[in-house]
């Protein structure tokens, strides 16, 4: 036990800096993905066919390609093609932004479509315009539907950062591997990393549960 804790203290600075990078990449990706997701969802919901087609193509593309392949293709493949060396952090954020934006767009679109169309018709029949109806009736209800899956996506994206070790981003998983390469103690070091991921994700989950409870207005 003493050995376990002692080693943990020794690895802590490097693991903590890895965790910082992990959280930074996840947060930055989700930030950009949020806006991209809104734009995509508007395309998906538009009555204009070509926009819908682009939307669906994007969603299927992201769903159909594993994150790791996307990251490798972008970092090594595109790098080789264009004769340039991407910044790994940049490639990481781009990878996860593209990935999360597709899933967030689906959450946004689904949430809006889940709102009872009858209420929209009632609002329109009272003379409220499209935008007022969206603002006062649709979005408040859609957001309530969307929040749990959005937080779920935050958790997924946070976990997906561990894949980015393949493009040598110095996040938590990569830093664990670097430590293990030096001290040959995979049992201990990977367990530290697991616990650190777990604590952060558990905190997010608890936050999600709390938000969900706060949002229940009508029962």
């Amino acid at each position: 036990m003493e050995h376990y804790l002692g080693l943990f203290a020794e690895c802590w600075p490097s693991l903590l800096s890895g965790l910082g990078t992990t959280i930074f990449i996840a947060a930055a990706s989700l930030f950009f993905a949020f806006f991209l997701g809104i734009i995509l969802a508007v395309m998906g919901l538009s009555p204009y066919r070509p926009l819908q087609a682009i939307y669906h193509f994007y969603i299927y593309l992201v769903r159909g390609v594993p994150v790791m392949i996307f990251a490798l293709f972008l970092f090594f493949g595109m790098g080789a093609l264009l004769h340039l060396q991407f910044n790994p952090i940049f490639a990481a954020i781009l990878t996860l932004t593209v990935n999360a934006s597709a899933y967030l767009a689906e959450i946004f679109r689904g949430g809006i479509q889940a709102v009872d169309q009858g209420q929209v018709e009632a609002a329109r029949s009272l003379g409220l315009g499209h935008l007022k109806t969206l603002q006062k009736i649709v979005l408040p209800q859609a957001i309530k539907i969307m929040i749990p899956p959005i937080i779920n996506q935050f958790i997924t994206t946070l976990k997906d950062t561990s894949i980015l070790s393949v493009i040598s981003v110095r996040e938590l998983t990569m830093n664990s591997q670097i430590i293990i390469a030096k001290n040959y103690m995979p049992f201990e070091v990977y367990s530290y990393a697991a616990i650190m991921y777990f604590v952060v994700i558990m905190a997010l989950s608890l936050f999600a549960r709390w938000v969900e409870r706060r949002l229940r207005y009508d029962d």
Partner: peptide, 17 residues
């Protein structure tokens, strides 16, 4: 125009929020 005509629906369609 719609303001001048009230409509009541089978499923009530009250705003849930």
């Amino acid at each position: 125009f719609r303001r001048r005509i009230g409509m009541v629906f089978q499923m009530f369609n009250l705003f849930a929020n």
